[in-house]
Amino acid sequence: MPQIVKDTLENSPMILFLAALVIAPFVIPNQYIVQIMVFIGIYVILAQSLNLLNGYIGLIAIGHAGFYGIGAYTSAKLTVDAGLPFELAFLCAGLVAGAFGWALGRPTLRLEGIYLALATLGFNLIVWLVLLNWNSFTGGPLGIKGIPRPTILGWEVDTRTEYYFFILAVVVTVVFTMARLVNSRFGRALVAIREDQLAAAAMGVDVTRYKVQAFVISAFYAGIAGACYAHFVRYISPDSFTMLESFILLAILALGGSGNMIGPIVGAAILIAIPELFRAVAEYRMLLYGLVLIIIMQVRPQGLFGGHHYNLHLRLFDRGPRRTYRGDAFLPSEAEQ
């Protein structure tokens, strides 16, 4: 059987899933559902971004909404005030957030994990305070209105359904790049650092450099998510980027399980959809997220998909070297001492 057929078969669940996502808006022409799917998409990007830190390299970042907000405001300011084309503003959202990630990561990543946690939370708060109070630049509590709909290489993304396809494309790109990244030499170094920083260094991994790089990449993706959000709702205010937003992301990772590609997707889908679909829950949305954080840690600390091999990933895009031993038998695992 040719390789391409084998890969296709092996990946059939994922291909079917993607196909379902593509035809979904035609089968369910409900605008409200489409809107929920867009939000899920945005949170998948955010959760994947945070997953790189919390899941793969094992850094405790709890203020991710800071980068999300910076991305949203960057793209909004650039399109509304500077009149930049969407494509450029979108990219800048990621780059600016990445630059902030560098500025925050460089000094704090040398320190123990707990300091990083505090620093990221403080960063989130500072971003929020600045957005709220720098009236002349950010519009203060009123935020920025009239953010244009995206136009991508001549394609005007007008309707919700069109925006859905735009987000779907972004999500697929993010998941694809992330899956490849964590399944490369780079990703192995990240996981090695998570597992044993000292041993990783002894093998020649420049731990601080990798931490900073992972931090910047993660911030970049969060910034991209911010731009996706800003151009969808077309009105942003500081309240969308508070610490609560960061905590939602933590709940998503806790539920889905971090350190793999599937967990953040499932976590985002469940936690974003539930309050939207069950109106009764909507009012208690944050309560739900808080309880998820407490209860999941008691009953299944690794989350729904945690504990799987970390590179549970999308084989379709990754026809890399795979099965490595062609000997007679794969032996059963040995009991630990």
């Binding site: 030499r185 996981v191 044993d196 041993a199 002894a202 093998m203 020649g204 991994v205 970390y310 490595t324």
Partner: peptide, 18 residues
């Protein structure tokens, strides 16, 4: 001090980092 959650292959590959 191995990378406990990684496979044998991956552990040794990290050794080949440089």
């Amino acid at each position: 001090r191995l990378f406990r959650e990684m496979t044998v292959m991956e552990n040794v590959l990290v050794g080949a980092h440089l």
